[in-house]
Amino acid sequence: MNPRLKIKMCGSNVKVFYAQKEILHGIHLDIPENRVTALIGPSGCGKSTFLRCLNRMNDTIEGARVTGQILLDEEDIYDPSVDVVELRSRVGMVFQKPNPFPKSIYENVAYGPRIHGLAKSRVDLDEIIEQSLLKAGLFHEVKDRLHDAGTSLSGGQQQRLCIARAIAVRPEVILMDEPCSALDPIATARIEELIDDLRRNYTITIVTHSMQQAARVSQFTAMFHMGNLVEVGTTKTIFTSPGEQRTQDYITGRFG
């Protein structure tokens, strides 16, 4: 990996157990700052599970246990001194299925800044919301109906609303778990453009099932298989000359 790149998050020997069953078998993975890292691999290999370790969403799953070490800016996020609420305000998440709150578009985006006390005034809050929606590429479509229900938007718009909601908290890292799997190709293309824009200010980790998507949006790719990290490298290397036969087979569609 390019030595000039700063490592934003770093997992070492990460193991995850669901009720005594080991799902991830010791993952070592670095996530470079201001880059898009794609996690690929066949279904059930543990990509989402690994992603959920990065903002401790696994804590909310009954019976889940994580061992090993994950650093965010040199600080172990599983250290008892780390507050999970603060962690999640720094590491945001966008889910597979768009999940806006059943509230207005405005309220959806305003919720995060409000609970974290990021806006000093109403004007401030309006500004944050406008900026977040702009960055998510949604503002011009919804500026006249900010008080309509978020659930009244189309699927692609809902997903961009969820991205705006994540951005509004000003996180450092954004995790995306197959953010386009429920969307049509046009909406998918918009989100992919968006991810490319966001990379300038955020570190992004994205799980995807689509090889083309990984190739289009990411700079680094990590290949998972059956709870192991098979290989990781620049997206170019992985897609043109993978070091492992399994990676080769997967990206050429021989299994998965």
Partner: peptide
């Protein structure tokens, strides 16, 4: 739906 809980927890509620 659990997705509502995840959404809120995911932005640090």
């Amino acid at each position: 739906p659990p997705s509502i809980r995840s959404a809120a927890l995911g932005i640090g509620a």
